[in-house]
Design a protein around this nucleic acid. Structure first.
Lengths: 240, 240
DNA sequence: CCAAAAGTGTTAGCCGTACACCCATGT
DNA sequence: ACATGGGTGTACGGCTAACACTTTTGG
């Protein structure tokens, strides 16, 4: 923290959100189509300016709500990192604090605002993005992959209750690998403090009904703060 | 990225640096004594305003140099995370981007600037800090601990050349545990792409001379960017 | 010779992987 | 009956943890 000898420069500060979900077995990211310059017509991450009196997470949650129409925070939101301020926006220096949302598939407002239109895109098919958003997306994907190894946040992609197979398909989509259903089942159910059985079963699907699980209390959020609980030993993603 | 309907708020943006080193087997952090209000007389992390045209890392490196007198970046510097802007400074909203430096023990300028005086403090004995710096320090310590598990950055605490025992003492200091010298030796030297022998040996110490190592090329920085190389399998810290 | 630290060998047990096998439902 | 997916048992291999032991220096 400095004294004020050099007049403190002030920067416009934005928040961007990399919202990830799993749809039909594929990892998807929420992108908006820019209807204004710069980068008009290009895809970009949802985001916007931090307003006076706002915390970073608040601002990210607000921008997400404004651009998708979701009523409340649909999943787990955390800070990813900050980018800039130099050379990322042709209009001038802007610092952006990127955020990562891991959420179940939620509907985005069909008719976006007058300036932007949001939709899900499979990450494997994302075209060129505006600003430095391709870099931010890369970092977000890497963060998501490692989050799944060491934290119970894979469940953030599912609803409140889910089967082991649904959870496994999340891991497979995010990591881009196939996992052995039997070993995954044993590992997920056998990790203390991770899952708890609801007692109910699925029905109507093909095959034997599956037990429904939810996150164990120790693995859930604590007072709005992301849990520090760790999966130990980790669920390891196959390396290459 | 937004259109400009709401006049974009502009924030003063600072960078703070949590500089960690290992001295005499203890993890130490660089702190400055504040000579001006607010928090006059209290300890704080070194840091200061981001200037126009600066990147975040540049600003962090500049502040570090200004407050310690080091000529060049003495170790590995990376972004930790952003804090604020609300309620962290009594003078008004300030966004700060915290950084983490892992470095060998380097001397700090005895006579600091007119406003601040920097020195190393063992992390176990850090008293109350100014602003939200205690929170930032906690996050930095946690980050440092996990960095050692998955990256070769433990070596950033050592000089260019070091013995396995010196490297082990880094792990022990950061993790606050004792490690078996024999198993650590095997693991460190046996991990492909981590260390390479210099060919020279120490001399003059008690006991058998030790071989000197340096980081293998694959584990070093690439063009100023922190390496993404990963220790796989990780060097695991004992849990509890 | 003794202490001290470096480095190697060896073993037991845990855990991840692979895969055979049984269970319970929909059609 | 059969297909489909849920769930359990089991064996092998690699890795960690624990520790006995040898090597090489300084005092």
């Amino acid at each position: 923290m400095p004294e004020s000898h050099p007049a403190p420069e002030r920067f416009p500060v934005t928040v961007d959100v990399v919202a990830l979900t799993v749809r039909r077995g594929e990892l998807n990211v929420l992108l908006i189509t820019r209807l204004i310059e710069p980068f008009r017509g290009k895809l970009a991450l949802p985001g916007g300016f931090v307003l006076a009196g706002e915390e970073l997470l608040e601002a990210a949650a607000r921008e997400l709500a404004e651009e998708t129409g979701v009523g409340h925070l649909p999943g787990h939101l955390e800070q990813l990192g900050s980018y800039g301020p130099k050379g990322r926006d042709p209009r001038g220096d802007v610092l952006t604090v990127a955020h990562l949302l891991l959420a179940p598939d939620f509907p985005v407002l069909a008719a976006g605002s007058d300036a932007e239109h949001a939709a899900w895109y499979p990450v494997a098919e994302v075209p060129e993005l505006a600003f430095d958003h391709a870099l931010i997306l890369d970092d977000a994907l890497e963060r998501a992959k490692s989050k799944l190894e060491y934290s119970p946040l894979g469940a953030a992609f599912c609803g409140d209750e889910f089967t082991i197979a649904q959870l496994r398909s999340v891991y497979e989509a995010v990591w881009g690998t196939r996992l052995d259903p039997r070993n995954f089942h044993r590992k997920a159910t056998g990790t203390p403090g991770f899952l708890e059985e609801t007692g109910t079963m699925t029905t109507g699907d093909a095959g034997r009904p599956a037990a429904l699980f939810r996150l164990a209390p120790a693995a859930r959020m604590t007072a709005g703060q992301p849990t520090r609980a760790v999966l130990n030993p980790p669920l390891m993603r196959p390396r290459e």
